[in-house]
Design a protein around this nucleic acid. Structure first.
Length: 310
DNA sequence: CTCAGGCGATAGCCATTATC
DNA sequence: GATAATGGCTATCGCCTGAG
């Protein structure tokens, strides 16, 4: 495999790469598509984990929106609690209402509960980082993340976004999509990486062959040069690929042979165990709701948004 | 302390688009 | 098709910082 580290050599570089054309996927002819809403959501997406505050100028740069438009939207989002304005720095940070949305989404995912224990056990057994991911437009986003006892170099947490094209998790997800959906995603990837499409395509093809032959794929320094990993798809009971799992570690900690002979088969088994666990568990709304949403004194449950605002 | 320069925010106007 | 809402462009204002 050639050196493709220049494609995306840092997480920040990847984050920048997804900054442009955020509202893509919409059709100008689609009368049901509300552009203003999409733009508002794009502004929220401009904020990345660990980056702190952003000013309107930076948001405008990241989203490709005009500054006055950004100013209006950030004002509106602030009024609604989705952004906080820090007067001292004249910048914005994500507000509590965003957390409420994220919490509401993540707490209702059966797959996340079913995956936690198997991923934790695997992370400890391999001394690796393991994760469950789902699609986020043309990226993968971590829905669960576990770390082995002495993994020092990888600090990806829940909410981390990684590229679909150059990670084992993303390729595993792509592999099991229905043809029509996969082709759409690959078209988008080709547009995004048009300058390096030959290399990206070669990587995808190699991974798809591995997935066909063995049920998992291996990446070696293709996203971050110091990182390697294996990925496996996680299909819904109806056969569609809704998620993917991975195990990753710094390159110096592991040999490629061991990735292929040991980690891959183990990850495939974990994916199978998670799917079995999902089938055995009742819906979150029936089983975990009370534990997640404590009763108030009057016997009512506080709304999620109210809990997150505290 | 003053001033200039840089940066970010926004008001005003007008064109375009969405909605009814 | 009428009206309201949205968005883009430009100019300007205000704040901050560093130099003198």
């Amino acid at each position: 495999m050639g050196n493709v580290s220049h494609l995306v050599t840092r997480t920040a570089a990847f984050q920048s790469s997804i900054e442009n054309g955020l509202a893509e996927g919409s059709s100008s002819k689609d009368r049901q598509f509300v552009t203003a809403l999409a733009r508002g959501l794009d502004i929220l997406r401009a904020f990345h984990a660990g980056e702190g505050m952003l000013g309107n100028q930076e948001i405008a740069h990241r989203t490709g929106l005009p500054k006055p438009t950004v100013a209006r939207l950030t004002h509106t989002l602030t009024e609604l609690g989705y952004l906080n304005y820090i007067r001292r720095f004249r910048k914005y940070e994500l507000g509590a209402s965003v957390l409420a949305l994220g919490y509401a989404a993540i707490s209702s995912m059966d797959v996340r509960r079913a995956s936690r224990q198997p991923l934790e056990q695997l992370a400890h057994a391999l001394n690796a980082s393991t994760a469950l991911g789902g699609r986020d437009r043309h990226s993968m986003i971590y829905l669960e993340a576990c770390r082995g006892p002495s993994v020092v170099a990888i600090t990806h947490d829940v909410g981390t976004r990684v590229p679909m094209a150059s990670t084992a998790m993303g390729r595993a997800y792509l592999f099991t999509l229905p043809d029509v959906d996969r082709n759409k995603q690959i078209d988008a990837i080709r547009r995004r990486w048009r300058d390096d499409w030959t290399k990206v395509k070669a990587g995808l093809e190699r991974s798809f062959k591995e997935l066909t032959d063995r049920g998992f794929c291996v990446t070696w320094g293709e996203w971050l040069p110091e990182l390697c990993g294996v990925g496996a798809p996680l299909r819904n009971s109806d056969g569609t690929a809704a998620y993917a799992v991975n195990a990753s570690a710094p390159i110096y900690q592991i040999s490629r042979d061991r990735l292929e002979a040991d980690w891959g088969p183990r990850l495939v088994k974990v994916a199978r165990d998670i799917r079995t666990g999902m089938a055995a568990q009742p819906s979150i709304t029936a089983s975990a709701g009370p534990a997640l949403r404590p009763m108030m004194a009057n016997g009512h449950r506080p709304p999620m948004s109210a809990m997150a605002r505290r």
